[in-house]
């Protein structure tokens, strides 16, 4: 009897933790997108007003960004400085590949960011500014969708995990 109870507690905690892990994914995404937007605003300032070269600009904004984007922009800067990539796009993509796969961002977010890397450093200030404006708009849409998803799914997954654990426990006992 005692053994059954201990096993049951294990099952319920395991399922509950799975649920919490799933709900954390939805909680982190809006925050990361918001942080990305503020980082990019800093990048915009660096490009438009400071006219800083991209490797230095990445390095500067990395220092002011939070964890995920710190890693990302640092690596992008290192990639650009290392000289093994032919274009900004390649360095940018390799940084995405390396640092953003294990974050809460989903595929469309990452694709959007990848497309943005295409444009970066390819034209004059005014054109860059236009692309930044467009990207903010797209990012805002993603952010709204992320907030919507969070509202819909965060609580659901949390309770779903525990309830399914409880159901499995009752079926097995």
């Amino acid at each position: 009897m005692l053994l059954k109870l201990i096993g049951g507690i294990f099952i319920i905690t395991a399922c509950g933790l799975f649920g919490i892990a799933a709900s954390n994914k939805y909680r982190g995404r809006p925050r990361e997108l918001r942080n990305l937007r503020s980082s990019l605003q800093m990048l915009e300032t660096e490009i438009i007003y400071g006219a800083t070269p991209l490797p230095n600009a990445f390095n500067n904004i990395a220092d002011k960004s939070c964890k995920v984007w710190y890693d990302f922009f640092k690596l992008a800067s290192i990639n650009l400085n290392s000289g093994i990539y032919y274009s900004v796009k390649e360095a940018w993509d390799s940084a995405i590949e390396e640092k953003l796969k294990n974050t809460n961002l989903n595929k469309p977010d990452i694709e959007l960011l990848g497309q943005f890397g295409n444009i970066l450093g390819n034209s004059d200030c005014e054109d860059q500014l236009k692309h930044f404006k467009l990207f903010y708009k797209q990012l805002e849409q993603q952010e709204d969708a992320a907030v919507e998803d969070k509202k819909k799914n965060e609580k659901l997954y949390r309770s779903l995990g525990f309830l399914l654990g409880l159901a499995v426990f009752i079926i097995l006992v």
Binding site: K155, L156, L160, L163, L164, A167, I170
Partner: peptide
Amino acid sequence: IIAILNMVLIKS
């Protein structure tokens, strides 16, 4: 438990 699950799922 299934009643609660049902309610949670319908609500979302």
